[in-house]
Design a protein around this nucleic acid. Structure first.
Lengths: 101, 101
DNA sequence: TAGATAGTTAGCTAATCATCTAATTGTTGT
DNA sequence: ACAACAATTAGATGATTAGCTAACTATCTA
């Protein structure tokens, strides 16, 4: 999906995904790590959500963001394959896409 | 490198890389595959070149573009690692980054 | 119910981007 | 030297983008 590449073309959004690698985080917790306004962060979240790279659920007044590894994997692997770059998914993570390590 | 992700965020540029997978091509040969003007294509080539994704050499009046697999591999693998997505380089292609298949 | 907190939406701006046409540079062949 | 061809540069334009402040919505708690 082209939206995935647009989404990860921005450094702030790549950093958001990196933070989400550890564990799901609320919008506010994520925003603390960046020197930009909350509305700007919210816009970044929208881009990531529309690309399917993150999923959300509400928890009280918090909105929890969670990374969606498979969408990222599909895009990267698909592109890598189309280009003839032989990237492979790590079999250790198969069926455990959100593994911390 | 952030420029790599910007470069591959555009569909035309991803297609250019896909064409270059087969073999090095001149600017004109590449341009034939796209419904945009030559100057626009030239601008796309600049973005790819500045990201280090392609290298060029002149051959008479032709400018030959060649894909640089290792830069792409480094960026994708680096990001994949930072995010905790366990992509690995295909060992079959080790030391043969420009392999056709 | 009122105040505080979390997050998004609305509306704006400056910068970047993809695209175009016209002009320029460089190379080859006659 | 000149015509033809390949490609880039110059310069303009409309669209998208990342950023901001202000205002709104929703939830919790005192």
């Amino acid at each position: 999906m082209s939206n995935v590449f647009k989404a990860i073309s921005d450094n702030t959004r790549r950093e958001i995904l990196r933070l989400l690698r550890e564990k799901p985080l609320s919008a506010g917790e994520i925003s603390k790590h960046f020197p930009v306004s909350k509305p700007t962060m919210s816009a970044h979240f929208s881009v990531l959500r529309e690309a399917g790279l993150v999923a959300t659920h509400k928890q009280g007044k918090l909105v929890i963001y969670q990374i969606n590894m498979s969408v990222l994997e599909d895009a990267l692997l698909g592109f890598s394959g189309a280009i003839g770059l032989g990237l492979r998914s790590n079999t250790l993570n198969k069926g455990n896409k959100n593994a911390k390590s």
